[in-house]
């Protein structure tokens, strides 16, 4: 029970951010699900490990909203894989997500700064 709860929490925590991260990854070029996981892991210095249980629903949700499009393609290793591509609408979304995330990070950082610094003002 407790485990389930934590799993759920993580999805919710990640939701906004995960969409943004996926869109950002696709910004660099079309990619399939496995590729996105790998890309995020290497880019984050092995810190971010995206759960497939969150990744695929997120991908499909993005597709439903028209921010990414998908098609079945042949990979270099001659394997059929569904490849995702960011759409113009997705790019706009990424921009607004990005700026909102930036505001959020700044705001959180401001709150989290040690109190003496606040006292200086």
């Amino acid at each position: 029970m407790a485990k389930k709860e934590s799993y759920k929490n993580r999805i919710e925590l990640l939701q906004g951010t995960l969409d943004m991260l996926i869109l950002q990854t696709l910004q660099w070029g079309p990619q399939h699900g496995y590729g996105i996981v790998q890309a995020l892991r290497t880019r984050s210095g092995e810190v971010l490990q995206v759960e497939t249980g969150s990744l695929y629903p997120a991908l499909h949700r993005l597709e439903r909203q028209g921010w990414v499009s998908s098609e079945w393609r042949q990979t270099e290793s001659n394997q059929r894989a569904r490849s995702y591509q960011i759409t113009p609408a997705g790019k706009e979304q990424l921009l607004s997500d990005h700026s909102r995330w930036q505001q959020m990070v700044e705001a959180i950082a401001a709150v989290m700064q040690v109190s003496p610094a606040g006292g200086d003002e």
Partner: peptide, 17 residues
């Protein structure tokens, strides 16, 4: 079916890697 195939592709790729 699409989703099933996507998942098996994912697994195959991970194994290959």
């Amino acid at each position: 079916d699409d989703i099933d195939e996507e998942i098996s592709t994912h697994l195959a790729m991970a194994v290959a890697d």
